[in-house]
């Protein structure tokens, strides 16, 4: 019944009344709250992922959430435990096996990912009664997020951000120049393990909203956009959070007013921002080369 009401509503360009109308449904309020938490946490973690070039590891950890959720459903516990258990476990496996070889590492990560996804498929095949099928787990849903789920998201998010704030400076140092950092006595390897565990937790959080296949978008695209825009760490971190937040809330609004899935809107909005920044940079590059007068800030720089 809620859904029928929601789809009957139309976008009116009057932002205040639109938001009032959307937020008259408790499930939408929860969705916006959860979206905000997830966007901030995954943006901050994703910023480090992009800086450390660990996209493949991040994608593998996010894919692993699928067997986690499917397995939890199969043995009859809440999917939340499955998400957290398997994401953190996969992060630990990658952390332990990391750095054993060069091309072997990527083959290993790929094999782990494919095998765990296959296991997820097996769980689904064994559990015949799964109502929505695997598509909800894979592509996410913003309907039916409960208030207690939001509380769990908030608690885990605060822990992740707090740990990240504690290790932020040495982690930044270790990410930018691992050798010099190791020389200065920074525990590079321990930091990398802690970071992967944080990545696992953040992924498990975000998977519950965006679906396991699209977490990766929320992590990587805003951070990649911000790092194209500016090289200053503090500023680009803030930009990342802002972009992820904007993409999530805009995506939620769009998904509310249309029949298409949330994941599509979030990824498309984020990617449009990325394309825009890339083309602006390319244009600037062309202008700089052809000798057209530069904008003042570039001359100053």
């Amino acid at each position: 019944m809620l859904l029928a009401d929601a789809s009957a509503a139309a976008w009116s360009w009057n932002l205040i009344s639109d938001f009032q109308q959307m937020w008259s449904f408790p499930f939408m309020v929860n969705a916006f709250r959860a979206g905000a938490i997830v966007a901030v946490v995954s943006a901050v973690v994703g910023w480090f992922v992009v800086l450390r070039r660990q996209t493949f590891a991040a994608h593998t950890v996010s894919a692993v959430a699928f067997p986690g959720a499917a397995g939890a459903v199969l043995i009859g516990v809440s999917a939340v435990y499955g998400y957290f258990a398997l994401c953190v476990a996969a992060a630990l496996v990658i952390a332990v096996l990391q750095g054993n070889g060069d091309h072997e590492e990527s083959a290993l990560t790929g094999t782990v990912q494919a095998f765990l996804l296959a296991s997820g498929f097996l769980f689904i095949a064994l559990y015949k009664g799964l109502l929505e099928g695997p598509q909800t787990i894979l592509f996410g849903t913003f309907l039916g997020i409960t208030a207690s789920q939001v509380t769990v998201l908030l608690c885990v998010g605060i822990v992740v951000l707090a740990v990240l704030a504690l290790i932020g400076r040495p982690l930044l140092f270790a990410s930018v120049d691992p050798q010099v950092a190791a020389g200065r006595g920074v525990p590079v390897r321990a930091l990398s393990v802690v970071f992967l565990v944080l990545l696992g937790a953040a992924t498990a959080e975000a998977s519950q909203i965006t679906g396991t296949l699209l977490v990766f978008a929320l992590m990587v695209i805003p951070a990649a956009t911000a790092q194209v825009l500016t090289a200053r760490p503090g500023l680009s971190l803030m930009l990342t959070v802002l972009l992820a937040f904007a993409a999530t809330w805009l995506g939620l609004t769009a998904a509310y007013y249309s029949p298409y899935p949330l994941g599509f809107f979030v990824t498309s909005i984020a990617f449009a921002g990325y394309l825009l920044t890339l083309s602006v940079r390319a244009l600037r590059g062309i202008r700089g080369r052809t000798g057209v007068p530069l904008p003042t800030e570039e001359v100053a720089a």
Partner: peptide, 22 residues
């Protein structure tokens, strides 16, 4: 570059979610 690949394919995956609904 890995970052470019990641950004492009995660968007395309989102597009996949759209087509499956369609």
């Amino acid at each position: 570059d890995d970052i470019v690949i990641g950004s492009v394919f995660s968007w395309i995956l989102g597009l996949g979610a759209f087509f499956i609904t369609l």
